[in-house]
Design a protein around this nucleic acid. Structure first.
Length: 554
RNA sequence: GCCCCCAUCGUCUAGAGGCCUAGGACACCAGGUUCUCAUCCUGGUAACACCGGUUCGAAUCCGGUUGGGGGUGCCA
């Protein structure tokens, strides 16, 4: 038995990942297994993405020991392609040494597995992901979710997250449109690890790749469709069946006869490179190891892999995300509501809330947690838990998520928001009291505006409610009786205010509520709001009496 | 048309053959707390698309049906 570093991570649901590097004569191997409630079970899906043991593939597998109370699984596991993206690491190429591991979990369950080792000691592959938006002036939430998943994946694995601006459409790719992308990423805290690449600067590289393919006989010139526009350059597909493993959608395959496997244009007759060519050349040059993008690219992936192979470059790993849809199951668009990152920003939603919600739209940590910090998301995020079906954007749930983040905002943020809304708020102690009263009533920051009566004599008045509670001479007379009591209170505090109101109500033959509502309207103009007596105490005797007297005279 | 993918409460999801009488969250409904609104607490309605097969046992595996979605450009 060999020894090596072992890391344990709790996955939730009673599962723990044990993973680690194991050093043997042949080099370093990685393994991983999952212990469920003390029972060992190799869990390829969970382990594949685990930093301690990625890219593990299943060989033969057996299941045994289905007992009445215990389930034990034993599978043979073969790590594939450690350190090189998996492309050129074929079994048998490096020394493969079968070894056995015996792991003693608390209940003495034994796992035995075979694994091969890589020859090189340099077995850590640095993961490099990218977000490659085409700047159109808006950033759709579906695209942003893809960016978020890329970012999380990179951060989870300690890799790099890059930005590539696919700005070859000169019409739409204005500086402003590019800035919109940058702003959206900045707002959401999607930090990048290298200076952004602008695709328009890579034209020479794209065309050079086309030349290389032409020279190698993998591309040819043709006036496709006999348009008379001249000759375009077409890529010659391999003519054999293709398969690839998608980290989200699983194994994908196309027979050579499939329509997606036919030759396609890579350079237009006007000399401009087509998306497919530009995209993969840039991916190669940026050293992208993992491509995480929308699932409208699944079919393109076969073309991209063929192109990359024809250029002799390593093929990245792919993961395709389903799209975000509306209530009709159609792609979520502007007409379905806020669809662009800027919309959410403009409407005062919190970036962290949108980030959290978007992550949860099609992914879950596997347990019941939903409100998660950035750090927790980085730790928990794995692609194998990403749903492979479209998800509907639920504004109600997002609003709930946003309110959760508002309630958790630090005191300083609350103060800042109030000061922005009310420059009159200069007294820190007073502001703190107001915030205490208003906090549970703020669902979106804009709700702060309803607290105007704490700071100004000019505040919105609900005319209907006012007329209902203070529209009659009797009501104003009753209010006057109470006001007289309030004017003489030794201490203008909540307890005294409440006692005085209740005794006054009793002496007038009224229920407390019959006085409470008119007072509230008189001092705040609103039918609802914080505890009335605390509200009165906070605004103080002078302001309270002034407003009450004004209401009485009206 | 052809190629491909998907299918659990209204919505987001948990679920990897027995822990499922299917769990959580949002939404909704009903109670409670309360001076109103909000918060908060308690409870409730609500789903394995359908039909077959495999198995002692299926939400889970297989096949088919239906339904949805994506792709099918000298767009990206």
């Amino acid at each position: 038995m060999q020894r090596g570093a072992v890391a344990a991570d709790r996955l939730g649901g009673g599962r723990t990942v044990l993973g680690g590097e194991t050093q043997g004569e042949q080099g370093i191997a990685r393994l991983g297994l999952v212990v469920v409630d003390g029972h060992a079970a190799v869990d390829v899906a969970q382990v594949r993405d685990h930093p301690a043991a990625r890219r593990i593939d299943v060989g033969e597998q057996t299941r045994e020991g289905v007992g009445t109370d215990r389930v034990m699984e034993r599978r043979e596991v073969r790590p594939v392609g450690l350190g090189d993206g998996g492309r050129d690491q074929q079994q048998g190429r490096h020394g493969q040494q079968a070894s056995k591991f015996v792991v003693h979990s608390p209940s003495m369950v034994v796992y035995k597995g075979k694994f091969s080792t890589t020859k090189s000691g340099r077995s850590t592959m640095t993961i490099r992901c990218r977000f490659a938006p085409s700047p159109t002036g808006n950033v759709h939430i579906g695209n942003m979710r893809a960016a978020i998943y890329n970012w999380l994946f990179a951060r989870h694995h300690g890799g790099q997250f890059l930005l590539r601006v696919e700005d070859t459409d000169r019409e739409r790719s204005t500086p402003e449109a590019v800035q919109t992308v940058l702003n959206a990423m900045d707002w959401l805290g999607l930090t990048v690890d290298e200076v952004p690449m602008y695709q328009s600067t890579q034209r020479d590289a794209h065309l050079a790749a086309a030349e290389q393919l032409l020279t190698a006989g993998r591309a040819y010139k043709l006036d496709k469709g006999g348009t008379g526009k001249g000759e375009a350059i077409l890529f010659r597909m391999p003519g054999s069946d293709m398969t690839y493993r998608d980290l989200i959608k699983g194994d994908q395959q196309r027979p050579a006869s499939s329509p997606t496997m036919s030759d396609f244009v890579i350079v237009r007759s006007d000399g401009n490179p087509v998306f497919h060519l530009a995209n993969i050349v840039d991916d190669i040059n940026q050293g992208i190891t993992h491509v995480i993008r929308g699932d409208d690219h699944v079919d393109n992936t076969f073309r991209h892999i063929a192109l990359i192979q024809a250029l002799g470059a390593p093929v990245p790993t792919y993961a395709h995300l389903p799209m975000i849809v509306n209530q009709q199951g159609k792609p979520y668009s502007k007409r379905d509501g806020a669809a662009f990152v800027g919309d959410f920003q403009d409407q005062g939603f919190l970036a962290d809330a949108l980030f959290n919600y978007l992550v949860l739209l099609g992914w879950s940590p596997g347990d019941d947690r939903e409100v998660l910090t950035r750090d927790e998301l980085v730790t928990l995020f794995t692609l194998d838990r990403v749903q492979s079906k479209p998800a509907q954007f639920d504004m109600k749930k997002f609003q709930w998520m946003n309110s959760e983040y508002i309630q958790r905002s630090p005191d300083a943020e609350w103060s800042r928001r109030f000061r922005d809304a009310f420059p009159e708020a200069t007294d820190d102690a007073y502001l703190a009291q107001v915030i205490t009263l208003m906090k549970p009533r703020v669902k979106v920051w804009a709700d702060i505006a309803t607290a105007a009566y704490f700071f100004r004599e000019e505040f919105p008045v609900d005319a209907d409610a006012y007329a209902k509670r203070l529209g009659t001479p009797e009501a104003r007379a009753q209010l006057a009786a109470l006001t007289a009591q309030y004017a003489n209170l030794p201490s203008f505090d909540a307890t005294a205010l409440e006692t005085a109101l209740r005794t006054t109500a009793e002496s007038l033959g009224l229920k407390p509520a019959d006085l409470i509502h008119p007072v509230r309207l008189a001092v705040s103009g609103q039918p609802g709001g914080p505890s009335l007596f605390h509200l009165l105490e906070t605004i103080g005797r002078n302001r309270a009496l002034n407003r009450l007297n004004k209401a009485i005279r009206a």
